[in-house]
Design a protein around this nucleic acid. Structure first.
Length: 228
DNA sequence: CGTTCGATGCACT
DNA sequence: GTGCATCGAACGT
């Protein structure tokens, strides 16, 4: 039996073929990499959310298979990218065996490569001021914009990023690798921006990390200004 | 500091 | 026609 050859450095299929909460936890500290004709960008994953199965009311698969959520029903280790709020693309990694719809939404990264390219893609604020490093990939919509991830990356095979995941001559290569970054201390809490299923604590984030999205959480009983 | 609200496209009922 | 797995400008305190 010849195991399918993956990209050297890319996490193997077996990493994704596990319970989704385990995959979510283990993604913290791993590095998302995207190569495009414009250059390469990369960032350490610091915040994710799990969406698990048809019984999870916040999961796109909650009302059964559709054309949009089809990638979630496919084999693990592929990207599921979709368009949201008429403005943003969001990227998930598909987990668990084919037939079991589940995925992990990537919500925030600590940028480590291609920061200039990220800044170009993000643009400037109204006053023309450049974004701070920590804001480049903070939030799921900002992350995809900075990384250049869009519809062309939907269904991309993260374990063989040069393969058929690329669409229409788009030479994008997307994968996740382990660079030996020590896994950060993480905490779990309710997922952000959803109504149904808000009771499930399936958001996993690096505690106290400046690149994590959402309102800054200051330590209990500490009224000092949070400065990052 | 906090909260509100408009932009904007598409999947789904 | 409705409702988003969002973002950030604008406004109130």
């Amino acid at each position: 039996m010849t195991p399918a050859r993956g990209r050297p450095g890319a996490l193997p299929r077996a990493f994704y073929d596990r319970p989704t909460l385990d995959v979510a936890r283990d993604l913290a500290g791993k590095v998302l990499v995207h190569e495009t004709p414009d250059g390469r960008t990369a960032g350490v994953i610091v915040e994710v959310e799990a969406y698990i199965g048809e019984t999870d009311p916040a999961c796109h698969a909650s009302s059964g298979p559709t054309r949009r959520n089809e990638p979630m029903y496919g084999p693990p280790g592929h990207a599921y990218v979709y368009f949201n709020y008429g403005i943003h693309f969001l990227v998930n990694v598909v987990t668990e065996a084919a037939g079991t719809p589940a995925a992990v939404l990537l919500r925030a990264l600590e940028p480590v490569e291609g920061l200039d390219l990220m800044r170009r893609r993000r643009g400037t604020r109204r006053g023309g001021e450049a974004l701070a490093d920590r804001d480049l990939c903070r939030g799921p919509g900002n992350l995809t914009r900075a990384m250049g991830i869009g519809p062309g990356e939907n269904r991309a095979d993260l374990t063989r990023p040069a393969g058929r995941g690329a669409v229409g001559g788009h030479v994008a290569r997307l994968w996740i690798e382990d660079r030996g970054v020590k896994a950060p201390p993480v905490a779990w809490g309710p997922r952000i921006g959803i109504r149904a299923g808000a009771d499930r604590p399936w958001r996993c984030y690096a505690v106290g990390h400046a690149c994590v999205s959402g309102p800054p959480v200051r330590p209990r009983g500490d009224a000092r200004r949070v400065r990052r």
